[in-house]
Design a protein around this nucleic acid. Structure first.
Lengths: 210, 210
DNA sequence: GTCTATAACGTGATAGAC
DNA sequence: GTCTATCACGTTATAGAC
């Protein structure tokens, strides 16, 4: 695992920087943050910080990766493997609800998603892969639930997965624009809206949430 | 209508600039465009362009407004007033399909939407108002269709309207990241997915579209 | 109303000392 | 590995001539 001593230490420092950056952005927000700002926040000079990451864009891409990692740790691989509809749904909505507590990260994510549209952007691959994994996780669950009749089968599961992804991303923007909007409740409502009328007849009706 | 001659002319010139800017961005794309770039494209100096719009941000906000105006002209107030589900749906999906032909505008819109999250941003109000109008148009239609049984009533119409908006915005990002994604088909599928099973039994099933 | 010229600034990146 | 110092650049905005 460890190469030369200095190598392992450098990696550890990188991780430490990313964790600290995550905290800072989550707490203090991301307002088009510059490398300098972030360097100050993590207690390094601008040059010192860029020593570990080749460029600004790569640095912020790594921050997003680290954040995903932290979310997996916090909410478990449950989201990935829980094929029970109620369990999957609850875990997923919990993750989204948690996002309300870290506006800076939501802002960073949304901003980067738009920037990374350029195929040359260092985060381009990250977003392609992340989107693919997001939809793969949903796909598995959706197929099983379509088979059991708990999810509409009027639309192919692949398309439904894209819709879930779009709602998650789109609701983040709506929430940032107007923080009184309840992202989690709206995403939760999507599960209800896609449940066939004959399934789970006890499901309460969802009313306006914002 | 016309005040002093110079005033009316100034307004006319403004409109001309915006129309030209719209063409240029639609055709040549928007890659974080600077005022200078756009000034060159519309045949003015940077200072000349900023003479008509106070600042860069106000300029781009006006471009978005002009674009909405052009869309209303092209697709009519039909979208707003057509309470027939099939008609509304077709018009709306046509607008989205048209977006595939103007990637630069989609990019500008998405970028601005994230920037405008800041309450101080000149486009903040624009996005609040536009979102409100979008949802108001859907709300009217959704309520009518819920009453007629053509749209699920398991979720409140206001929440459904937010979901439609989120899917439109979110699919734009997915499409920009991977242009092989079919935004229009996915949005269209959302209408199908939210149709109760007992309504319109002839509706064909929607398969993977990307 | 439109231009040229430039101010004033912030940025990311790099060179080089330690 | 980390710093200081600085470079080289692009940006928006503005002043002032015409």
């Amino acid at each position: 695992m460890a190469g030369r001593g200095s190598y392992a230490k450098g990696v550890a420092k990188r991780e430490e920087i990313l964790e600290r950056a995550l905290e800072v952005i989550a707490r203090e927000g991301y307002r088009g943050a510059s490398v300098k700002e972030l360097a100050d926040a993590v207690g390094l000079s601008q040059a010192g910080l860029l020593h570990y990451f080749g460029s600004k864009e790569e640095l912020f891409t790594e921050i997003l990766r680290k954040r995903d990692e932290a979310d997996v740790v916090a909410y478990g691989p449950a989201e990935m493997s829980d094929l029970d509809l109620a369990g999957f749904r609850k875990t997923y909505v919990d993750v989204i609800r948690h996002n309300s507590d870290v506006p800076g990260l939501v802002q960073l994510f949304s901003r980067m998603a738009v920037d990374a549209v350029d195929p040359e952007h260092p985060a381009h691959r990250y977003f392609l892969e992340r989107g693919g994994m997001f939809r793969a996780a949903f796909l598995e669950m959706l197929r099983a639930r379509q088979a059991s009749g708990e999810m509409t089968d009027r639309v192919d599961a692949e398309v439904l997965a894209r819709i879930f992804q779009a709602v998650a991303d789109g609701m983040q923007v709506q929430w940032m624009l107007d923080p009184s909007v309840d992202m989690a409740a709206t995403v939760d409502a999507l599960f209800v809206a896609l449940t066939p009328a004959h399934a789970e007849p006890k499901e309460p009706r969802v009313d306006a949430a914002s």
